[in-house]
Computed example of a mutant assay.
Amino acid sequence: MKDSQYLQAPAGALWTFACRLYDQPGVMTCCLDAQDQAGLSVNWLLACAWLSSRGQRLDYNVILGATAWQEWHREVTSPLRSARKHLGVQNRQHSLYAVLKNVELDAEREELAMLERCCAPLTAAEQDVDAATLMQDNLLVYLHSTGLQGEAIEHWQQQLIPLRQGSLRLRDELAGP
């Protein structure tokens, strides 16, 4: 997500936040590990962080209702990612690899726009909930929605600590002095 054309293009609030969060130390690695090892969605992970930075609690029904996102992810983003990865194993220097990477980023951007629209009706969390707790709660809602249970939930809660830390740093940074 570091490509300047993406950071400079007009974007929704979630895309802008996601690009900045993804650049925080350790965030890209832990998100890609979660995607590759557990099939988790990087975009949902970033959306959890975005919502918590806005003081919003993720609702399980929002995830269930994100059918347009699910279809787009399954039919567009995932096949593009698979094609890019397949080509990258053989030859990252191939001109088509860069094209697929850019198109995949466009598909990811569309996913984030869909998630932003899905999350629009969410209201603010209770006043007494701190950002770190809200971030953990949002991640738990998402992790449970994927079918993970018990030790797997605990494992990914630990593996996603850089995401939580990066989200809190970015939230503080955006809040200013």
Rank of each mutant, 00 (worst) to 15 (best):
M114I: 12
E111H: 11
N102P: 06
G39E: 09
S52P: 03
P79Q: 05
L105S: 12
S95Y: 03
L58G: 10
A49R: 13
V76E: 08
A68H: 07
L100W: 05
E108W: 15
K85G: 10
D59H: 08
C48I: 04
L45Q: 06
S95N: 05
R57Y: 13
I63Q: 07
T77N: 10
S41Y: 08
I63W: 14
A66R: 01
D106E: 15
G65T: 01
K85R: 11
L64D: 10
G65V: 05
S95A: 06
V76P: 06
S95M: 04
V89T: 10
L112W: 12
G65P: 04
Q70G: 01
T77Q: 07
Q70E: 03
S82N: 05
S95F: 02
L46K: 09
R74L: 03
H86W: 08
H73V: 04
S41F: 08
T77Y: 08
W50T: 00
Q93D: 12
W69A: 04
V42T: 14
W44Y: 13
L46M: 10
N43T: 10
L100N: 11
R74E: 10
V99M: 10
Q90V: 01
S78H: 14
G65I: 03
T77A: 14
Y97M: 05
Q93W: 02
L105F: 14
T67C: 00
S95E: 11
L45W: 04
V76Y: 03
N43A: 01
G65Q: 12
L58R: 05
A68F: 01
Q93N: 08
L105T: 09
A98V: 02
W44Q: 13
A47H: 08
S52D: 03
S53C: 08
K85A: 06
L64E: 14
A98N: 13
N61W: 01
W50D: 04
E108K: 15
A83D: 01
W50I: 00
D59C: 01
H86T: 03
N61M: 07
E111T: 12
P79H: 07
W50C: 03
E108T: 14
L112Y: 07
Y60L: 07
L64N: 12
L80R: 04
A107W: 11
W69L: 07
S52E: 03
G39D: 09
A68R: 06
A47Y: 04
